[in-house]
Design a binder for these strands. Structure first.
Length: 208
DNA sequence: TTGAGGATTCTC
DNA sequence: AGAATCCTCAAA
């Protein structure tokens, strides 16, 4: 399998991608199940996903896809299991796993990650991070630590066609994740579509 | 540790 | 105009 030789074979041959059908569901169903999965790059950088948010297309005023397809959000309307990368605040990138069926415009924002491997490479990309917990405790930080920019928009997280994947090492999601409203939005502020691992050091905005 | 405010550029 | 954010600084 190509994803193994490209992404995980050399250092973690037992890590497995999630099937395409995992992503072909409502993002509020997928999101909590992405907790404790691994975001992995072909150079060995890897981290455990500890915080996510769901964005649900035409039913969700806070989603980039709410008003239909544009040049920016085109990837969200494509095949599930691909990476949707967006740019915001003039300097930050955000990373999502596309969910739902083609045309729905749904996704799960990857908000925070616990660095596991390739931490020195992450530090090189995030010189301002003082502690390990500053490396990827936020969507912009996570993207920067993993070197995710516009170039990776549309990458397939199932086949790892461009050297990035979401893999499982067998750790299940938390039984009872913390659920609450999403961060940094001005519409649909009450949708309880943010989930994170309870009491986890690497989650963003620990105070509410 | 907390809160306020600036940075910086793409998108619609 | 506003953005699915981060960083610095000041005050406590």
């Amino acid at each position: 399998m190509r994803y193994r030789s490209r992404v995980s074979d050399a250092f973690a041959p037992d890590w497995r991608p999630l099937p395409r059908e995992f992503y072909r569901r409502h993002p509020a169903e997928v999101a909590p199940e992405l907790l404790n999965k691994l975001l992995v790059r072909s150079d060995g950088r890897a981290g455990r996903i500890v915080e996510v948010e769901a964005y649900a297309g035409s039913e969700d005023p806070a989603a980039h896809s709410f008003r239909g397809p544009t040049a920016r959000n085109a990837t969200m309307f494509g095949e599930p299991g691909h990476l949707y990368v967006y740019f915001t605040y003039g300097m930050h990138w955000g990373s999502n796993a596309v969910c739902g069926d083609v045309g729905e415009g749904a996704g799960v924002l990857l908000r925070a990650m616990e660095p596991l491997q390739g931490i020195e490479a992450m530090r090189a990309l995030r010189p301002k991070a003082r502690r390990d917990r500053d490396l990827a405790s936020g969507p912009g930080k996570l993207s920067q630590a993993m070197g995710i920019t516009r170039e990776l928009d549309g990458a397939d997280l199932v086949t790892a066609d461009r050297g990035i994947a979401i893999l499982s090492d067998g750790m299940p999601p938390p039984r009872r994740p913390v659920v609450g409203p999403r961060v940094g939005i001005s519409k649909a502020v009450d949708f309880p579509w943010r989930w994170h691992v309870p009491d986890h050091l690497h989650v963003s905005v620990r105070k509410r």
